[in-house]
Design a protein around this nucleic acid. Structure first.
Lengths: 158, 158
DNA sequence: CTGTAGAAGTTGAATTTCGAACCAATGGAT
DNA sequence: ATCCATTGGTTCGAAATTCAACTTCTACAG
């Protein structure tokens, strides 16, 4: 599986596994995005709502939120501005650290979350979870976990 | 695992598997994108180069290319324009169907491909393939395949 | 033939994302 | 106390993406 210049090319199995992972991840976000559209939300919006909903006080520091959702600060900042305009969240400043800001779920944001969540879960089931046997589910989880760890470690590195 | 309103919420295992898949797919594209940056290419660029390289005559119809790379026609059109400006591909029209266009790899595009491919493969290995045991690789492939099929079937549906 | 629905691609404007530069506040060193 | 390197966040301009409108051509029904 190695050639003159020393490159370890992918075997057929490796190729296939890699391709399928790539395709699924793209097709899946495409589909979930689509299922969310009728509610006027994007996956990004939704994920932020989830994170805030699960946090106490329905609030999170901007940087924590950025880290949790794997977005750049810049991108999150824009994102929150849009959601603020849509009335889903508001910014509140943080008195313990005067540089800091909280993104806080509004009543409207909370309501939206409660309304949309069941549909989104249904969507995730239909297009992913329910297509996996319990064993497959476990296999996927166990296989992917070390990769996630590895990638998170790389994340900040130069 | 079901609640009053009939929603089948995700179990903890399901949650975890789902989250990890999502995270891996994001972290991975982020990382691969990064590894490609020194060569002045994006994953999109690269994927188009691959597709063209593997096609006979180093050419593909725009719509086939769009389908193969899961992009919209519009997006592909812009993408090819950029790559054309970068000298990696050129458009050629198709005499069998006068609406049609081929995207064709230029000599430069081909050279770039040959130069970059080993690094990209190395990157895919380092951040994905080599972190999976052969069994895990097979499990991932087998688990994800039906999902990909399902999603491709949904794809065009209204 | 002719008309017309649909396919192939492009275009342009609006939106989103990225990256770098920026400002303000913090927490240690000295 | 005073630097000053870092952290938290925003902003700006450039690049990428989306969405709808548009043109040209094909295919095929009548």
């Amino acid at each position: 599986m190695e050639t003159e210049n020393g490159t370890r090319w992918l075997s057929d199995e490796e190729q296939r596994a890699w391709r399928i992972h790539l395709d699924v991840s793209r097709l899946l976000t495409y589909q979930l995005e689509r299922d969310l559209q009728p509610f006027g939300l994007t996956m990004n919006d939704y994920e932020i709502l989830v994170n805030l909903s699960e946090s106490e006080g329905h609030r999170m520091r901007m940087s924590d939120l950025a880290a949790a959702t794997l977005q750049s600060k810049s991108r999150l900042s824009h994102q929150i501005t849009r959601m603020e305009n849509a009335g889903l969240v508001r910014r509140e400043n943080c008195e313990s650290d005067r540089r800091g800001l909280y993104a806080v779920l509004t009543e409207d944001g909370w309501e939206t979350m409660r309304k949309v969540a069941p549909h989104h879960v249904e969507s995730v089931r239909k297009h992913f979870i329910d297509l996996l046997s319990p064993e497959a589910l476990e296999a996927v989880h166990d296989s992917l976990t070390p990769i996630a760890d590895h990638l998170r470690a790389q994340r900040g590195r130069v």
